[in-house]
Amino acid sequence: MAQTKALNALEPFMALTKSASAPRAAADLITQATSNPNTFVFAELLHAPQIQALAESSEYSSHLKLLEIFSYGTYHDHTSATDLPALNEQQIRKLRQLSLLTLAKSPHNLSYASLQRELGITDDRTLEELVISAIYAGLLDAQLDARNRTVHISSVSPLRDLAPGAIPSVLDSLSTWSARCGSTLDELETEIASIKATAAQRHADKKAWAAVEEKLAQDVRTEDQGYVHGRNQPNMINRAVQHLRGQRYGKRGSVEANVGDEDEEPMDVDDEDVYDEGDANGNGKKRASRRKL
């Protein structure tokens, strides 16, 4: 979104290049474009024929170098040179904001002291205001750590152009990043395969254990049924006999009258009584008697 906004902001200046045939007009156009608060990309303007023609002008060639710094350089590059045009307040603020995007490539070097040295700032308050303005402009996402005097930048907008000869190093960085991503993907695929294998083995073990439990339960049920049948079989026979006797005898063992059975005879019960018959000498003598009921 920030890149689209910046490109749209550059369109009016690209239209003016058609009439900027004189070196003075082209130089003024550079000053206007770099002073505008909404322009942050300059590659298209830099490669315009009218702007490139300034390289042949001894008086305004420095404006072409200035535009190159705004395109892919830093504020420190401007202060290190001696033949560049002076910057107005808007240009200083703009170049410092763009320099933050380049300095964010080294997150370990974002202390207040380092940024103040690179951006030509002498106090913390000015640096913090610059970072806040860059955040509100959509150039970066950052947090100010005033206690530790550090700026934590989490992301930057792709608004910086590539310097000449920077493509090979960019390709190397992309190749390294691609190889790292490929290695990470291979590790993830290996881990996923391991997790799937572990899950399948766990499912198989669970299924096998369920089958073992079912077999054990079936064996126990079979044994219980056999045990219950063998244990209760005598009791069942006894209950059957008692039921049959109950139909024949009363509750106290007396014979129930059966009107239809006249031929039934009383039951003989032999009762052996054993007792001692004492003699004169005190010696006992056993005698058995039988009674007939």
Score class of each variant (00 low, 15 high):
79 T>D: 04
201 Q>D: 14
71 S>L: 01
175 S>C: 10
47 H>I: 05
261 D>F: 03
221 R>W: 00
72 Y>I: 04
32 Q>C: 08
222 T>G: 13
285 K>H: 14
37 P>D: 09
289 S>H: 12
149 R>A: 13
233 Q>W: 01
101 L>P: 14
48 A>K: 03
52 Q>R: 15
157 S>C: 07
271 D>K: 13
24 R>C: 09
278 G>M: 14
59 E>V: 12
86 A>C: 05
158 P>H: 06
93 R>W: 04
16 L>I: 03
152 H>A: 12
45 L>N: 05
139 L>P: 11
152 H>G: 10
239 R>N: 14
1 M>L: 06
63 H>E: 04
243 H>L: 09
183 S>D: 12
187 E>L: 03
286 K>H: 13
122 T>P: 07
14 M>T: 02
154 S>T: 14
214 E>F: 03
230 G>R: 10
170 V>R: 15
107 P>Y: 07
134 A>Q: 04
177 W>T: 15
53 A>Y: 02
133 S>K: 13
248 R>T: 12
136 Y>I: 14
48 A>F: 01
101 L>H: 12
14 M>E: 03
163 A>L: 06
33 A>T: 00
233 Q>L: 07
205 D>W: 03
46 L>Q: 03
114 S>I: 01
5 K>R: 08
223 E>L: 10
214 E>L: 05
37 P>L: 04
7 L>D: 13
139 L>D: 08
292 K>Q: 11
130 L>M: 04
43 A>Q: 06
24 R>F: 06
70 F>W: 07
9 A>T: 01
197 A>Y: 02
106 S>P: 04
12 P>Q: 01
280 A>L: 10
154 S>N: 07
250 G>Y: 00
110 L>C: 15
103 L>V: 02
36 N>F: 00
236 M>C: 07
5 K>L: 09
287 R>Y: 11
8 N>D: 03
284 G>R: 10
199 A>W: 03
236 M>I: 12
216 L>V: 15
204 A>Q: 09
256 E>D: 09
167 I>L: 13
63 H>W: 06
12 P>I: 00
69 I>M: 05
195 I>S: 12
180 R>T: 15
61 S>R: 12
234 P>S: 01
61 S>K: 12
274 V>F: 10
205 D>M: 05
94 K>Y: 08
196 K>I: 06
208 A>E: 09
261 D>T: 11
221 R>Q: 13
1 M>D: 09
291 R>K: 14
255 V>L: 11
141 D>H: 04
169 S>Y: 09
209 W>S: 15
39 T>L: 06
109 N>G: 05
248 R>H: 09
165 G>E: 02
138 G>M: 04
273 D>L: 13
